[in-house]
Nucleic acid binder design. Structure first.
Length: 566
RNA sequence: CGGGGAGUAGCGUAGUCCGGUUUAACGCGCCUGCUUUGGGAGCAGGAGAUCGGGGGUUCGAAUCCCCCCUCCCCGACCA
């Protein structure tokens, strides 16, 4: 790569719209350019990094027997009607109409497509298991794209799908993906960890996410410092922080207009943890009351997983009809409504609650005495400070970027689309599926978060846009000779031959992050020598100019081996 | 969708509150020439803007009023 003839549009200043680190650096280094909200163009350097990421994943997918395909990004509505996702996807799906007025979707994912292929092409259990994968542009009309390339409306995904006869087979395919992902992310240089996760729109099977800690991360993970427990905030469990027991006689108190936990607790002079939040929901036309300790938040995700997707918050009218009071003054006593409590309330019995009468609360009520609780469930969102569910350490909260997600689907899509095979007894069975995804551009951004330090980037050698950059300080002849030698021995080199001052070249090199640097300048050449710098460590070695190329290759070979084995 | 912020030359900004001395300014970048070259060079000259769009008020609008669009951040939402 000859710099003077290439497009590497670095920026001297921070672009106004870029607030988070990885976005700012990718922009300034000339890797990406925005096109619209959640839309990006990958420029040459950005493309090279994503191609290397892609190739690593491809190798690891092939290693577990994955077969690469390339599926259509455009698909007819009928397929999505079969799975119910034409409706379920809502506004997140890009839809369009063809010239014959047929509804089409720009695929946000490809379960339906692969299930269709399976339904047409797979007949017998003897053809299983199969793993199919692809690198594809996905389209999702996200409500709020953010973080540059971290969450976009069009992005590249490695998605794969496994097809097994039974759930034991699915476990094997799932584990194979777990291994492939671990190897792939390790080779890319990610310092990742794996968390328990939830499936969201995909379904309800077991799933795990591969996370990287990052300041700009938009996911929250809880990590136990004492054991191996790691979970996405959506599913994380924890033992509540113990709350002091409320010492109070039962008393009804006038609390006009006070609805929030802070207002009520402050007025009643109790701790938020001594208050019960009574949250009314409606499911299938029937009311359902959820009780929660005042200092915790409900997890909508857990609520839906426990009671079903159709559960919705009650309106004020619902509250009046079933509870006899407005939202904000509800309590668990003296009512007929089905009541469930979060486990955070188990630690104590006496609490302050809404009186089920507008503008009144009751202090000192006994849940065991007056509330008809059907079951104690895990319904709250865990907080930093909660106790690990598996040991006694205190959980810590981390901002994370989700690199990949592996997910046990089961037969949801194979049933819907009719992907079936006969088993060894000749009986017809729905194929058991799994689905697995890695966001490619996001993986690049996450690496910036991990490897940008001290005002400079240093990509891991396995994914760097180029392996070594030759900086010519007015020494065109020697520089291009070294560059040619590097190219000949198979090292990916960039030659900065521009007619600009040294400062500009060094500044751009710091942004672009090529991990090795050969500086060819008059100072060293007096002794016939050049400098080789390892950008990440800052270590500089001086070698004879004739030896520069082979020395760099040697360093690279060693480092690549280290990355692969770590 | 709720809340906040921002659109002025390729980029970063000032000017906007309080309309007119601004032919819309400054830095960087860009072009030409000379000098310079181990961390974002110096001098001289030059090009580049219908001030996000539309409408209105006014003798006069980047500046005031109305409508619209776009982008960013927080939240809701989200394989």
């Amino acid at each position: 790569m000859i710099w003077s003839r290439s497009l590497v549009p670095t920026l001297r200043e921070n672009p106004r719209q870029a607030e988070n680190l990885s976005h700012r650096i990718l922009l300034r280094a000339g890797f990406v350019r925005p096109l619209g909200s959640g839309l990006y163009n990958l420029l040459p350097f950005g493309l090279r990094v994503t191609q290397k990421i892609t190739q690593i994943i491809r190798e690891e997918m092939n290693r577990i027997g994955g077969q690469e395909m390339f599926l259509s990004a455009l698909s007819p509505r009928s397929l999505w009607d079969k799975s119910g996702r034409w409706d379920a996807y809502g506004d997140d799906m890009f839809r369009l109409r063809d010239r014959k007025a047929q509804d089409m979707a720009l695929c946000p994912t490809h379960e339906e497509i692969v299930a269709l292929i399976a339904s047409k092409e797979l007949r017998s259990y003897k053809e299983l298991p199969q793993i199919w994968y692809q690198f594809q542009t996905k389209f999702r009309d996200e409500p709020r794209p953010r973080g540059g390339v971290l969450r976009t409306r069009q992005f590249t995904m490695k998605d794969s799908y496994s097809f097994d006869l039974d759930y034991e087979g699915l476990d094997r395919s799932f584990n194979l993906h777990h291994e492939a992902y671990s190897r792939a992310f390790t080779r890319m240089g990610h310092r990742f960890f794996v968390v328990e996760a939830s499936g969201g729109l995909m379904g309800t099977g077991e799933s795990a996410e591969f996370m990287v800690e990052a300041s700009s991360g938009e996911d929250t993970s809880f990590v136990c410092p004492g054991c191996e427990y790691r979970a996405n905030a959506e599913v994380a469990q924890g033992k509540p922080i113990p709350a002091p027991t409320l010492e109070a006689k039962r008393e009804k108190i006038h609390t006009p207009g006070l609805k929030t936990v802070e207002e009520v607790a402050g007025f009643l002079d109790v701790k938020p943890s001594q208050l019960v939040k009574s949250l009314l929901y409606m499911r299938g036309g029937k009311p359902l009351l959820v009780l929660l300790r005042g200092d915790y938040e409900l997890s909508e995700e857990k609520l839906k997983r426990t009671f079903g997707e159709d559960i919705v918050p009650a309106t004020d009218e619902d509250a009046r009809r079933y509870m006899g009071a407005s939202l904000g003054f509800l309590g668990p006593q003296g009512i007929e409504v089905a009541t469930y409590a979060d486990k955070s309330l188990e630690g104590s019995d006496i609490y302050a609650v809404g009186a089920n009468e507008d503008d009144y609360h009751i202090v000192g009520i006994s849940l065991s005495g007056e509330a008809n609780i059907r079951e104690y469930l895990d319904l709250r969102r865990v907080r930093a400070g909660d106790i690990c569910p598996k040991c006694d350490a205190v959980l810590t909260e981390k901002n994370t970027i989700e690199l990949g997600h592996i997910f046990k689907l089961g037969t949801k899509y194979s049933e819907a689309i009719g992907a079936r095979v006969v088993d060894e007894k000749g009986a017809d069975r729905a194929i058991v599926m799994g689905s697995y995804g890695i966001g490619i551009e996001r993986s690049m951004a996450a690496l910036v978060d991990q490897y940008y330090a001290d005002e400079r980037m240093a990509w891991p050698v396995t994914v760097a846009p180029y392996e070594v950059e030759v900086i010519s300080l007015g020494e065109a002849e020697v520089s291009s000779k070294i560059y040619d030698e590097l190219s000949e021995i198979g090292v990916e080199a960039a030659l900065d031959d521009r007619d600009v001052t040294p400062g500009v070249k060094f500044a751009d090199a710091d942004l672009v992050g090529i991990p090795y640097r050969i500086v060819v300048g008059p100072r060293g050449l007096k002794q016939g020598k050049v400098d080789i710098k390892n950008v990440a460590t800052g270590e500089i070695i001086t070698v004879r100019k004739e030896d520069a190329a082979t020395k760099v290759r040697e360093l690279l070979t060693k480092e690549k081996k280290d990355v692969g084995s770590s």
